[in-house]
């Protein structure tokens, strides 16, 4: 155990907020100016604790009969051995003491592509978003609405994107130290494209194959795509725990899916997004074959018991449809 020693103030997430070098033991810690380490904490006593060599030859901290004591793992201790990773609390401040010969862990492998930060991903993301917005606005422009239609779509999209990306950037700054705005913008753009793609594929496939289930529950698939986007946003903030983040994203997706099902049920009495496939496409996109009228009506005939069963169900409603 070699001098000098370092007293470190830690944030709750374990990051070092402040570090002070002390040349020799013992180290007096407290709010008073006669200490080696002055603790600006209203809950710390003027002479709060002392760091010295313990009986085992290692470092230890000792309480100097302070009002609030030395807290380790939620319990007050008179003495506490320190091994360099021991974090104890004085007042509201978390502290750690290390000696100069403390062995730090090896450098982490750098997996971040530093070229893909800042402007390049920001511009790429912006371009993708603008492109997507213009393409979908063009698809909906059936009324000769002119340039204002596209401008409106762009402004709306950019406003939403700004709020979304801004939120992630802020979170990144708070929890990851950097903003990484460009990265988040790019992730948001890719996520949006993924969500649109899922929706489009579901809709076309539902029509093409006459598969009702695809449009009835396509919002669940869109939520899954959205959870993927959230995963990458979180991973950008903190790349250390991909499994935990995946779990959290899945949880968010489940919650979202549950909320959508509840809203659907409230709105239409069904968990499905819609009662029937309403998206129609060009005949060229159709794969499912025509069925004869008889077969269709026979199937409708078989629905009678299910409809009759509905009669008995209680309903809490009105005589008129809300229109």
């Amino acid at each position: 155990m070699n001098a000098p020693f370092y007293v470190e103030v830690l944030a709750r997430n374990g990051e070092v907020r402040h570090r002070q070098r002390v040349e020799a033991l013992p180290i007096r810690i407290g709010r008073g100016y006669d200490n080696e380490f002055i603790l600006d904490d209203l809950h710390a006593s003027p002479q709060h604790a002392l760091v010295e060599i313990g009986e085992d030859g290692g470092l230890q901290v000792r309480d100097l009969d302070s009002r609030n004591g030395v807290i380790f793992k939620g319990r007050r201790r008179n003495q506490l051995s320190l091994d360099g990773d021991t974090v104890f609390r004085l007042g509201h401040t978390n502290l750690r003491v290390r000696s100069a010969d403390f062995a730090v862990v090896d450098a982490r492998r750098d997996t971040t592509s530093h070229g893909w930060e800042g402007w390049p991903p920001a511009l790429a993301g912006l371009a993708l978003m603008v492109l997507l917005t213009l393409v979908s606005a063009w698809g909906e422009d059936t009324e000769k609405s002119g340039a204002i239609h596209y401008v409106n779509a762009l402004v709306g999209m950019l406003a939403i994107a700004l709020v979304w990306v801004g939120g992630w950037t802020l979170a990144n700054r708070l929890f990851g130290g950097q903003t990484r705005f460009g990265r988040h913008l790019f992730i948001a753009a890719c996520g949006l494209i993924a969500i649109e793609a899922v929706s489009l594929v579901c809709s076309v496939a539902a029509y093409s194959l006459s598969l009702e289930i695809l449009t009835k529950f396509d919002s669940q698939l869109m939520i899954a795509a959205m959870a993927g986007m959230v995963y990458f946003h979180l991973l950008t903030i903190n790349p250390n725990h991909p499994k935990r983040i995946a779990f959290a994203s899945a949880l968010v997706a489940l919650l979202g899916a549950g909320v959508v099902l509840m809203v659907n049920y409230q709105k239409s009495g069904l968990f499905a997004d819609e009662l029937y496939i309403s998206d129609l496409y060009s005949p060229a996109l159709r794969l499912s074959a025509d069925k004869p009228v008889n077969q269709f009506l026979d199937a409708a005939g078989r629905l009678k018991p299910a409809i009759d069963a509905e009669r008995g169900k209680a309903v809490n409603g009105d005589d008129e449809s809300p229109e």
Binding site: L275, S288, A299, D319, S321
Partner: peptide, 15 residues
């Protein structure tokens, strides 16, 4: 679906 007079619609669809 909350109509007191009639049950919720049930549909069948096909090409």
């Amino acid at each position: 679906h909350k109509d007191l007079r009639l049950t919720a619609p049930q549909c069948i669809e096909q090409f």
